[in-house]
Simulated assay, not measured.
Amino acid sequence: MRRIGDTAIAAVTALALGAGVWLLSTNTGTPPQPSAAEGRPDPGGEHRAAPALPASPPTRIRVPTIRVNAPLMGLALTSSGSLDVPPLAEKNLAGWYEAGTTPGDTGTAVVAGHVDNTEGPAVFYDLGALKRGATIEIDREDSTTAVFTVDAVEVYSAKNFPDAKVYGTARRPELRVITCGGGYSKTTGYQGNVVVFAHLTAARPT
């Protein structure tokens, strides 16, 4: 598996994704959106960061507070330069950018998934309801589970998507979880993305 440096990830992703990860949606409901309060720094201070783990591909993501428990597939860039997405028909499937940082290693790892499909809510339908301090667990091929703590949950429009903030270089192990969000149009679909910012706070045997 090819692994590129964190700086290169930021450059490639910003160029390829432009204003976020665009996932097809049929708007089968009204998924929750994060409040402005969830995007502000935690008044209780940062959770202590855990040491980085060796690189190892992820296999599953769990977010207990929003009932996510889903396998992970590798995602690459499409021929047009955008990040590919999991098959739309697979409601309970997420993906990770496999040319980049593996979750738990130093840098910014990226996970993406659909908010809904023609059958209803999909894997990250409730992502916008996540709160600061919540836990995200990612199982890895090396039989370790990387445990991340949520620092912020924000929603961005396509016109104001902060590529550098979302995909930029990180000196510690960080995670971004992304799905569709914001306003909705039948012509263009969702107008933005919900983004969860988290950092590694623990590791344990899977």
Score class of each variant (00 low, 15 high):
Val147Thr: 13
Asn160Lys: 11
Asp163His: 11
Asp163Lys: 11
Val123Arg: 02
Arg2Pro: 15
Phe148Met: 10
Ser185Gly: 03
Thr26Ala: 11
Thr59Tyr: 05
Gly168Met: 05
Ala129Cys: 06
Gly133Ala: 07
Leu53Val: 08
Cys180Leu: 07
Leu130His: 01
Val150Trp: 00
Tyr190Trp: 13
Ala129Val: 05
Ala36Lys: 09
Pro57Leu: 11
Gly128Glu: 01
Arg2Ile: 14
Ile61Asp: 08
Ala70Leu: 05
Ala55Ser: 15
Phe161Cys: 01
Ala170Gly: 07
Gly107Met: 09
Leu200Gly: 02
Gly39Leu: 09
Thr108Lys: 02
Val196Leu: 11
Asp142Leu: 06
Arg2Gln: 12
Val150Gln: 10
Arg40Tyr: 06
Leu72Pro: 03
Pro87His: 02
Ile61Leu: 15
Gly18Pro: 06
Gly100Thr: 03
Asn193Pro: 09
Pro34Cys: 07
His114Gln: 00
Tyr97Pro: 00
Asp105Trp: 01
Arg67Ala: 15
Tyr167Asp: 00
Ala10Trp: 08
Glu141Lys: 12
Gly45Cys: 08
Thr188Tyr: 13
Phe197Asp: 14
Thr102Tyr: 09
Val85Phe: 06
His47Ala: 15
Tyr125Cys: 05
Ile136Phe: 01
Val153Arg: 07
Glu90Cys: 05
Leu93Ala: 09
Glu119Ser: 14
Thr169Arg: 14
Phe124Gly: 03
Pro162Val: 03
Pro121Val: 07
Ala198Leu: 06
Ala112Ser: 13
Pro87Cys: 00
Val150Phe: 01
Tyr97Leu: 07
Gly45Ala: 09
Gly113Thr: 05
Ala50Gly: 08
Asp42Leu: 10
Leu83Ser: 10
Glu174Pro: 00
Ala52His: 04
Gln33Asn: 10
Arg67Leu: 11
Thr101Leu: 01
Val123Asp: 08
Leu24Lys: 11
Ser56Glu: 05
Ile4Asn: 03
Leu130Trp: 00
Asp142Ile: 04
Thr179Cys: 12
Ser79Thr: 12
Val21Pro: 02
Asp139Phe: 04
Pro43Ile: 05
Glu154Tyr: 02
Gly20Gln: 08
Leu23Tyr: 03
Phe197Gln: 09
Ala55Trp: 04
Ala170Glu: 13
Thr30Lys: 11
Thr28Pro: 03
Tyr190Asn: 08
Arg67Gly: 04
Ala52Cys: 02
Gly168Gln: 01
Ala16Trp: 03
Gly81Val: 09
Gln191Arg: 12
Gly113Trp: 10
Ala158Asn: 12
Thr102Phe: 06
Asp84Phe: 10
Gly182Arg: 04
Phe161Ser: 01
Glu98Pro: 00
Asn27His: 15
Ser143Gln: 13
Pro205Met: 08
Ala10His: 06
Val196Lys: 02
Glu154Lys: 15
Pro32Met: 03
Thr145Val: 13
His47Arg: 15
Lys159Arg: 13
Arg48Ser: 14
Arg62Ala: 15
Met1Gln: 12
Thr101His: 01
Ala170Asn: 07
Leu127Glu: 06
Trp22Met: 06
Asp105Ala: 15
Phe124Arg: 06
Leu24Thr: 12
Tyr190Glu: 07
Ala70Lys: 04
Thr206Arg: 14
Tyr125Ile: 05
Thr102Trp: 10
Pro87Gln: 03
Ser82Cys: 01
Thr7Arg: 14
Ala198Arg: 07
Asn117Lys: 02
Tyr97Val: 02
Leu130Gly: 09
Thr7Val: 12
Val68Ser: 08
Gly39Phe: 12
Ala129Ile: 05
Val111Glu: 08
Arg204Asn: 06
